[in-house]
Structure formats: C-alpha cells, structure tokens
Simulated scan of single mutants.
Amino acid sequence: MDRTERFYKIELLLRNRGQVSFEVLREELDVSPATLKRDLQYLRDRMDAPIVYDRGDNAYRFAQGGGGRNGAAHQLPGLWFSEAEIHALLTMHQLMAGLDDDGVLARHLSPMMDKLQAMLGADAGEARELMRRVKVVGTARRRAPSRYFELLGSALMRRQRVWLRYFKRSDRSESVREVSPQRLLHYRNTWYLDAWCHASDGLRRFALDAIREARPLDSRARPVALKDLESRLDAGYGIYGGGAKIRWATLIFQPDAAQWVAHEEWHPQQKSRWLPDGRYELQVPYSDPTEIAMDILRHGDNVRVVGDAALVRTIAERMARAAAQYV
C-alpha cells in the first residue's frame, strides 16, 4: 500500500483499538521498522496527529482528548470513514454487485473496495464475511451488454450524443436513432436509458438489452431539466410512466392479500386506505395500462378494479383469455 493508505490505516488502528504496539503496527502495515518510524514522525510533525508513545504499555495511542495543536479533534484531510462506515460501504458494494450482471460496476469499484478492506486491518476477514452474508436475488433479469452500459454511462457524464441501432419488441423492427442521454434507470432487474430522441423530437426510454449497436458522437447532448424529465417519464405507472394523459386506477384487495399489499409502494404518489371490512383500497396513477395490468393480474381473484371502465375491461378480457387456455 502507498504512504497515504498507511497514514489512514495507522489512524484507524489507533482509534479503533485505543493503543497498538510498534510490532503490531509494523505487521499490519507490512513495512520495515524504519518506514514505520518515518510514518509516525510525519504524522506527528506534518499532519499534527497527537500520537504518543506510552512506555508503561509499550504501545502507541492518541493523546488524551485526541486533539491537535489547535485543540480540535484530529482527523486526516480528505475522505475519512469510520470502521462502521467502511462496513456499510462494503455491504452497499455487495448490494450493487447483485444489480451488476456483467461486472461493469464491480470492475471499476474494485480498487476502492480493496483499499477500504485494507483500512480495516485485522477486521478485513470480517468484512469479507459480511459481504458474503448479503445476497441479492433477481428474477426475470434481462442482461445488457456491458460495453453499451459503459459507453452510455460515459456519454451521459460527458454530455455527448449517441448513435443507436435499436430493436423494438412490440413490432419486431429495428430503427436508427440519434439520442442525447439524460439518465440511466435500473428498474425491476433491467437497465434503461432515458434520452432525448432527435428523430422523434421528444423524450424516450430505451431498454439497454434491446440496443443492437451504439457509438458516441462528437456533438453535444441536448440538455433537459431533471424536473421536466421526471414530469414526462415518471408521472405514470412503472416503466410505461410517460404519457400526456394520466388516469387513476382504484384497486380493492381482499383482506388476505391486503396484509402484503399495504406494505408495498406501487407508485410514489399512490393513495390508500383500509376499508371497514378489512379490505384495502389502493389508488395509483397510470398512463399506459400495460404494466399495471400485469401487476393486477398477478393477484388473481384477490383484487378487483373499480371505477375505470377501460381498465376493468382490459383485466376482464385478459383473465378470460387466460382461463380459456385451461378449458
């Protein structure tokens, strides 16, 4: 490890253990006695670290109060994490790994994770054990080619336009688009790109796994305010949230299903209430019935749509066609 990493590790060891012997410090840092002496001297003289040697305990510790020359609690400049924060970051990394099919994010974050583990010293094994005890299971996952994720992420940060060859599943056709990336979205185990499409002159959402080819362009991306992006693409239900006309679906869940649904968020602006007989009423906005119909159908006879004639008809027709397959 480099000298900066050693400085942070020395501070972390002293803060977490209270006092540490010279030999333990040297073993933890894997350096020569001369190097460790120089590091301790540099921390005292240049970084104002209140490190003292306790002859009685034959160990190094922070002076009483842990203050520097100005009396304030000492802390190295730059990014600082406590042991608890490091554990939290390592756990978060494991959660992100569950969303990272092709290892794109993990590959770029790995050096930082190694440094965080190194800062934990003797507790690095505990950190690795903790990471193995966090598991993310995704179903019906659609894998997106990693080269497009990286390319689109880079274009988004650089504010570059991108040329796409895109496959449209609804009619099994391909089209060529020039887009200005605005946001990457991870939704239900799948990555999407929200972008301004210059061919259709509007905001569109593209599934990354449906992108057949992509390349960055030299031209500058068209800027779109985040509030405009959210109002246009997030107002309705799920991934089909876009649409000018927003309608509200009213769903009545039977008491058994209500115990689970009452703890779910179907939409950030949903409205809900318990009915006197133990049923649960949920109201959610939508513009396109495709996804909300799928979520309603998975509850079978435990839910009933009321008030919205068009949605009622859609659900009834879908259930009738499904039942007809088992006759």
Rank of each mutant, 00 (worst) to 15 (best):
L203S: 02
E150P: 01
S154A: 14
G243H: 02
T250P: 04
E174L: 07
W260N: 06
R212P: 02
G241L: 03
L275Y: 04
S170F: 14
K168V: 15
L203Y: 01
P216C: 12
S146I: 14
W248A: 05
G236P: 09
D234L: 08
Q254M: 13
P223A: 03
I211S: 06
R177M: 09
V176K: 14
A225S: 07
R169H: 13
L251T: 06
S231F: 00
A249Y: 03
E230I: 09
R273N: 01
S154L: 14
L203K: 00
R177G: 08
H263I: 00
H267G: 09
I211K: 02
G202I: 03
R222E: 11
L151A: 08
K245I: 13
A221T: 06
R169A: 15
R165G: 09
K271T: 03
A225F: 05
E174N: 00
A195M: 07
A249H: 05
K271R: 15
S180M: 07
Q182M: 11
Q254S: 12
I211Q: 06
L275M: 10
D228C: 03
F149E: 12
L185D: 13
L164A: 03
A144Q: 14
A225K: 11
I252A: 01
W196G: 04
L156V: 14
G236R: 06
F167N: 01
G242M: 11
R232E: 13
A249K: 05
A195V: 01
A244Q: 15
L217Y: 01
R177E: 05
F206A: 03
L151D: 04
W266P: 07
H263C: 01
S272Y: 03
